[in-house]
Write a protein that binds this DNA or RNA. Structure first.
Lengths: 156, 156
DNA sequence: CTGCCTGCAAACTCTTTGCACGAAT
DNA sequence: ATTCGTGCAAAGAGTTTGCAGGCAG
């Protein structure tokens, strides 16, 4: 999904929710959707300001816009339990079942398709009389090459 | 595992690590291991103080002792992405594969065995040249009975 | 007696919020 | 014109840390 196409979806989402289409919101959204990898709120603030110097963007607005974008499903929130939340654009659209693999050496987050997760959640919840609404599978792992060579090939 | 037995293991762990066996550390450990359910750092502080009024216990020492206890594997850290960390005693011992199911109605954390997780972590990591060190499956779920009756049977 | 451990309080990080102004509808 | 959105700065929650004194080994 291209940025203009995504932005149009976002504008539509805002309109349907009765929210106003403002310059800061669009600037933040564009910056978020242009990101290649995972990013934090702070990184998004920096990037949005650099990308759209004309539009004044405050930290507060970034934090207020992130939940809106997440709700629109054009952005996904990724919590790896480090105190700060990560986000990434959802270019494919739809509710994907993905697992996060966090490399403790290169500190990078990989996401891979996990089609079995839904079944896992159901299996585990039904025993308790619960119905799953969301689930996440997170794997912490060490890099084999890093341990042998002392360098992470994915980082250079 | 009883509390005295666990405390002995903890003392041994401290000794092996070259750490000192102090009254605050033991008081905090006992309080942690006596807990029936998940608890936070703050709750542990309150409980340890109530349980051992003679020993002076500060918040800082609780926060400094928690990682030690976690490393000893007598305590497990449970992160459900709410900003505060939860802990619970690991009475069974060993590295278990457990999934957390968080009920959004009663706000309680259930843990159930999920032996398939290990296989999945390996499958997923090996594709990336990584070796898994830990993994967690976390499911957010709604309570079926709560939705029908408006009350959670697990809470009363 | 040596140096790790402790308590206290301040600092820190990430996120949220109150308020008055400014902009979208 | 009305109301929602914004920026700023302060507050908030949870956790960490610097320092002077205390206790374990």
């Amino acid at each position: 999904m291209t940025i203009p196409a995504a932005r149009e979806k976002f504008e539509t989402f805002l309109a349907r929710k009765g929210l106003r289409v403002t310059k800061p919101r669009l600037a933040i959204f564009d910056a978020a959707f242009a990101q290649a990898d995972h990013f934090t709120a702070e990184q998004l603030l920096d990037y949005a300001r650099a990308r759209t110097p004309k539009v004044k963007i405050s930290r507060a607005t970034v934090y207020r816009t992130l939940p809106v974008m997440t709700e629109s499903a054009l952005l996904r929130e990724v919590d790896i339990g480090t105190g700060e939340k990560f986000y990434r654009p959802n270019r494919e659209g739809g509710d994907q079942q993905v697992a996060q693999v966090v490399c403790v050496d290169c500190n990078r987050i990989f996401e891979i398709s996990a089609p079995f997760m839904g079944w896992y959640g159901n299996t585990v919840s039904s025993k308790l009389g619960l119905t799953p609404v969301s689930q996440r599978l997170q794997v912490s792992a060490t890099c084999d090459i890093f341990r042998r060579t002392g360098g992470c090939p994915r980082r250079g």
